[in-house]
Simulated assay, not measured.
Amino acid sequence: METITKTEDLRILCEKLRQYDYVTVDTEFMRDSTYWPQLCLVQLCSPEAADTGAAVDPLADGIDLTPLFELMQDESVIKVFHAARQDIEIFVHLNGKVPHPVFDTQVAAMVLGFGDQVGYETLVNKVARKNIDKSMRFTDWSRRPLSSKQLSYALSDVTHLRTIYEDFHERLTANDRAPWLFEEMERLTDPGIYTIDPADAWLRLKTRSNSPKFLAVAKALGEWRETEAQRKNLPRNRVMRDDTLLDIAARQPQNETDLDKTRGVGRNFGASKPGQAIIEAIKNALAQPQETWPQPKARTDLPAGIGPTVELLKVLLKLCSEEKGVAQRLVASSDDLQNIAADDNADVPALHGWRRELFGQYALRLKHGQIALKLEKGEVALVELEPNS
């Protein structure tokens, strides 16, 4: 068990790890009181059975993480994570680049039929046949020094990951599903997923009006809050709660007195710097030409009577997923099923690529009466139908 606190030691470690086909990676971070995740520890492990892993301390004085970032960008080394999205977000924030190539064992588990969003502990139990000490799960990773128990717990996240990766890699190769996972990894490592544009922050809000005027102000306030949260490194709701922001968007106050009447703001808030910024944002939003205001999404009303079709597609999805050993959630969503029921040419993942081969083609055939579902000895099965039967 090695702890890396110096740049030169990190460089030596990363040079060694770049000699292997893959390296397992995990991070520990804190985000309770910040906008950006605070990276507190990076765990790395090689495929060598004798390797007990190394813990890189990014909080160590003077350490330069450049060798680590270079390892994350090395195309010859697969970076193996479990539930990689937050880990990737951290590296993008610190380095501006998405690690690549990546293998996410949680997604691989879905491809291999272990279920939806399977936890690491479950995979360790089922695949590595080991148990994890969970006592350090909610530890404060930002406090120093870290105990040997904390480090041992953290490193178990990468040592067992080797066993899971090698098992999954073998299974994916044996059943020709490696291309399925590759497709999912390309989505996961799309840089656009990790780009946070304050101008789009309002899309996260649960707006309660479709008025373009209301949406224009909500957009402006959402952008202001997101920019402030990033600048101050505070959670969004520490800057302003959603309900307060939406109340201001609905009332659209344009002076200090009216803003101070908003529920949830402090006394004399309108005269404060944030208050003035909000008033200015509202005025600027309303001054824009109305044709530039956000428009409500056109509501697509599904055809009447497709409910039973959707229910049949749900049964079919479960049948196909179980037969092929793939998590249902990875194949199609409820919205996908509704869209397929309404439109043969719906632009949904379930009608493209491997998903179409596994499920989509059968969904269309069921919809058009070319196949049917039947109960046979207590189990659901597909049956071919004769034309015009």
Score class of each variant (00 low, 15 high):
residue 112 L to V: 07
residue 293 W to C: 03
residue 241 R to Y: 05
residue 380 V to Q: 13
residue 31 R to G: 11
residue 60 A to F: 07
residue 158 V to Q: 09
residue 314 K to R: 14
residue 296 P to V: 09
residue 142 S to V: 02
residue 336 D to R: 09
residue 43 Q to H: 04
residue 324 K to P: 12
residue 192 G to N: 14
residue 61 D to N: 01
residue 255 N to D: 15
residue 124 V to K: 02
residue 102 V to L: 00
residue 38 Q to F: 08
residue 33 S to D: 15
residue 335 D to T: 14
residue 340 I to G: 05
residue 356 R to I: 12
residue 175 N to F: 03
residue 223 E to R: 03
residue 307 G to A: 00
residue 155 L to D: 08
residue 259 L to H: 13
residue 383 V to E: 15
residue 363 A to M: 10
residue 89 E to L: 00
residue 241 R to G: 00
residue 303 P to C: 04
residue 200 D to G: 01
residue 295 Q to C: 07
residue 328 Q to L: 10
residue 20 Y to A: 01
residue 253 P to G: 11
residue 58 P to W: 02
residue 101 P to A: 05
residue 193 I to E: 15
residue 374 K to T: 15
residue 125 N to P: 12
residue 131 N to Y: 05
residue 125 N to R: 13
residue 77 V to S: 01
residue 240 M to A: 04
residue 147 S to I: 09
residue 150 Q to S: 02
residue 351 L to W: 13
residue 368 H to C: 06
residue 143 R to W: 06
residue 320 C to M: 14
residue 31 R to V: 10
residue 121 E to C: 06
residue 19 Q to W: 05
residue 187 R to M: 13
residue 90 I to M: 07
residue 12 I to Y: 10
residue 300 T to E: 15
residue 307 G to Q: 06
residue 72 M to D: 14
residue 129 R to S: 11
residue 209 S to V: 05
residue 2 E to C: 07
residue 277 A to E: 15
residue 135 S to I: 08
residue 178 A to F: 14
residue 365 R to L: 12
residue 158 V to A: 09
residue 39 L to M: 03
residue 158 V to M: 05
residue 239 V to K: 05
residue 333 S to A: 09
residue 355 R to W: 11
residue 112 L to D: 01
residue 142 S to R: 04
residue 20 Y to I: 01
residue 250 A to K: 11
residue 347 D to N: 11
residue 28 E to S: 10
residue 320 C to R: 14
residue 85 R to I: 08
residue 321 S to W: 05
residue 74 D to P: 12
residue 325 G to D: 11
residue 240 M to P: 14
residue 135 S to F: 03
residue 32 D to P: 10
residue 178 A to W: 15
residue 193 I to P: 15
residue 117 Q to F: 03
residue 369 G to R: 07
residue 25 V to K: 00
residue 382 L to R: 02
residue 180 W to R: 02
residue 254 Q to W: 13
residue 52 T to S: 04
residue 124 V to Q: 05
residue 138 F to S: 13
residue 113 G to L: 01
residue 169 H to D: 15
residue 265 V to S: 05
